[in-house]
């Protein structure tokens, strides 16, 4: 269980929130001009990085407001919480603990098979 700092209510348990998937996905302005492949990319494809991830949350069992977060998916550390109206923080602002794309962080991973 992780704790999430709702920008409106303060720190609460993750189970009070619902995850809304990747943040900053923009619906194409001209769907009719897109090929099936391009439309499929918008509908079905979301980034799934190990490491820094921009995502949406909604405080379902609280204020019911949406907000964005930057979380490290390799450790579940929440690096930044920001409002929907704020600019997207650049990935370069954050330090990833991973040495390779599918590596394991020294701290925060439950993968004891490969944790060094």
């Amino acid at each position: 269980m992780i704790l999430i700092h709702c920008p409106y209510c303060g720190e609460r348990e993750q189970s009070e929130f619902t995850n809304g998937g990747e943040a900053h996905v923009i619906r194409p302005k001209n769907p009719e001009a897109l090929s099936d492949k391009e439309w499929g990319q918008y509908v079905f494809y979301r980034s799934n990085p190990k490491g820094i991830f921009h995502e949406r949350w909604v405080h379902t069992h609280g204020c019911k407001k949406w907000f964005n977060a930057v979380r490290d998916t390799s450790t579940d550390t929440i690096l930044k919480i920001y409002k929907l109206t704020d600019n997207r923080p650049e990935i370069s602002e954050f330090k990833s603990p991973l040495k390779s794309p599918s590596g394991e962080p020294a701290v925060g991973s439950g993968n004891f098979a490969v944790k060094k």
Binding site: I2, Q14, K50, T73, S109, G110
Partner: peptide
């Protein structure tokens, strides 16, 4: 768990 993660743990809830 209701969110993407690579931590191989999972939440107690």
């Amino acid at each position: 768990d209701g969110y993407n993660s690579f931590t191989q743990r999972g939440g107690y809830d």
